[in-house]
Amino acid sequence: MLGTEHPNVLQVSDLHVHVKSNNGINTLVQDINITLKRGKILGLVGESGCGKTVTSMSILQLLDRKTKTIEGSIVVKGRELNGLDDKEMRKIRGKDIAFIMQNPMNAFTPVFTIGHQFIETIRSHTQWNKKQATEIAIEAMHHVNLPNPVKLLKYYPFQLSGGMLQRVMIAIAACLHPAVIIADEPTTALDVNNQKIVLRHLDKIRSEYGSAILLISHDLGVISEMADEVAVMQNGKIVEKADVFQLFDEPQHEYTKKLLNARSILHLDEPIIHFA
């Protein structure tokens, strides 16, 4: 495919998102510049409401264009996405850029089984038949530690726990080995054991298939495990971007320092946990 060898699989330049409302025009994010290289992970951190999800939704062109304007350029594998119509974007989503949504419940339609939705997604992007797609789905669910995938495929979304749904979504996103994975808070519903299993799996997809990952998380444990580079967002702007070691060891921006300090507040009176 065109541009596959280009080292920058995702290039976001001067991204601005505005929203129109009764009180005029508001800026949700501004001056966003992001480069994702093949096989690399960029962490995006920031307080809730700072614009992380808006950024990922605009990359995927999922924002409602009636009320929102997206300015700037979003290039994936050499192709400009900003302004593409929905039909074109549907071909790209899932295959070239996969999205792990923040809220697993919203990612599924309540009236179809998990299996139906999983298998349809695979088939809409590949030539595989139903049987092959089912096998791939089952294997992908094993990778994220879901027990009894054959049974789960017959379930409706409401019959799965929050963490199980989140893992199904990750399985769907990873199984087509996309060039870019945008993971918006991918492990918020997972316990530590499953979190680790899922992170290992994402890392495997990255190292084996070269997928680049934009990893959005408020969890500094997840970021420090996974990221090569980290961007810190505050009030819709990226205020600091650095190598992960540098960021944790020598944060420059006051806001970054605040976030890093909040890390220890929770376990200040917790002398028994030893991190190592």
Binding site: K196, R200, G221, F248
Partner: peptide, 19 residues
């Protein structure tokens, strides 16, 4: 097992991306 899976919040103590 739970205690052992708590992620350290510093890249120096990574355990997932070690390869």
């Amino acid at each position: 097992e739970m205690r052992g899976s708590i992620l350290a919040e510093h890249p120096r103590y990574r355990s997932v991306r070690t390869r």
